[in-house]
Design a protein around this nucleic acid. Structure first.
Length: 166
DNA sequence: GCCAACGTTGGC
DNA sequence: GCCAACGTTGGC
């Protein structure tokens, strides 16, 4: 099982929106970066995801989700009226793909970007790299564990409903 | 709102 | 293949 971090601006789609969604599940449409897409292509069912609020106050990991559907074509790339339309995309070559993710749990106390920066073991984390903008990125097993511990500490109670591995 | 960092586009 | 121009991301 692998670990990931996916960014969303809460003004467009937040952890609460995911909680309110049917089956607490959403398709992750709109990714228009090849590296991010390639990461989604390698995702497996059950992979665990940190749901990150970008351009938020404060920026933070707001919850945990998991992959419930493997990569498939992102239809919004084919719709000229859609904001994420890409004229290079065709039905036979849709170019862009998405996965479905389901909420595992919202964090009682979000782990902020500032919190993460204060952990020496997270120094190499992609999110913390200067100028990093990747919206879908891998998280190492160690990083995952460290961040889950941090989340537990902040919430003052055990993380429930998370799979073994953190 | 600012702006640094980054990815993409397109002329050459 | 180079690289300037442009658009976007995302923290501050």
């Amino acid at each position: 099982m692998k670990y990931w971090l996916m960014k969303s601006e809460p003004e467009s789609f937040s952890i609460d929106d995911l909680a309110k969604a049917p089956k607490k599940t959403t398709c992750w449409d709109g990714v228009r970066n090849y590296q991010a897409r390639n990461f989604m292509r390698t995702m497996e069912l059950g992979d665990q995801v940190f749901f990150y609020h970008s351009s938020a106050d404060p920026p933070c990991i707001a919850g945990i989700a998991e992959v419930v559907k493997k990569a498939y074509p992102d239809h919004t790339a084919l719709d000229p009226k859609d904001h994420h339309y890409d004229r290079k995309a065709t039905p036979s070559n849709p170019i862009w793909e998405m996965v479905d993710i389901k909420l595992v749990r919202k964090l009682d106390a979000p782990v902020t970007l500032d919190d993460l920066r204060n952990v020496a073991r997270l120094e190499k984390m992609e999110l913390l790299r200067r100028g990093s903008r990747l919206s879908v990125q891998p998280v190492s097993a160690e990083e995952w564990k460290v961040i889950c511990r941090l989340a537990e500490k902040k919430s003052k109670r055990p993380l429930q409903n998370t799979r073994p591995g953190f």
